[in-house]
């Protein structure tokens, strides 16, 4: 018995496959989902999402969103998600610097909100990228 798993973002469907196990960060703490999990709806927080298929582990960075489980079909709706191996460290560093600059200057509420979201995204990407690199070495 497997789980049908998909991550959908407004830009595209990032991941869609049959998997054995999913670990996701939620507002009430990290949860791991195994097949035949009870139907659940929960909110996820920015963090690392780990998908296990056979002996393969796939790490992904996700920003906030929602996760639903319905009869062994798991869908994650995330504002933004990226596979660990696709993260571009240089770009993330750059984005972080840019967000820092906007936040240090006098900006409107709207700009601040955008910068903050960018910041969370960049920090998360960097964290997961570095963690992953160490593991690969």
């Amino acid at each position: 018995m497997n789980l049908l798993f998909e991550i959908i973002t407004p830009e595209k469907v990032i991941y869609k496959d049959e998997v054995n196990e999913i670990t996701a960060p939620t507002v009430t703490g990290e949860i791991t989902i195994l097949p035949n999990h009870v139907n659940l709806l929960t909110q996820i927080t920015p963090g690392e999402l780990i998908v296990k298929k056979g002996n393969n582990l796939q790490h992904l960075a996700v920003t906030g969103g929602f996760l639903e489980i319905q009869n062994n079909k798991v869908s994650v709706l995330a504002e933004y998600a990226i596979k660990a191996q696709d993260i571009e460290v240089a770009r993330a560093t750059e984005a972080k610097k840019r967000a820092e600059k906007v936040m240090s200057e006098k900006s409107t509420d709207n700009e601040l909100r955008v910068a903050q979201a960018e910041m969370i995204k960049a920090i998360l990407e960097l964290k997961i990228a570095t963690k992953h690199k160490k593991r690969a070495v």
Binding site: V27, T28, N39, L40, L41
Partner: peptide, 17 residues
């Protein structure tokens, strides 16, 4: 609804959703 569990409660989940 086909969900049997909400984390946090449905009332808290609803506004951001």
């Amino acid at each position: 609804s086909s969900f049997s569990l909400f984390e946090p409660l449905a009332d808290e989940l609803l506004p951001p959703l």
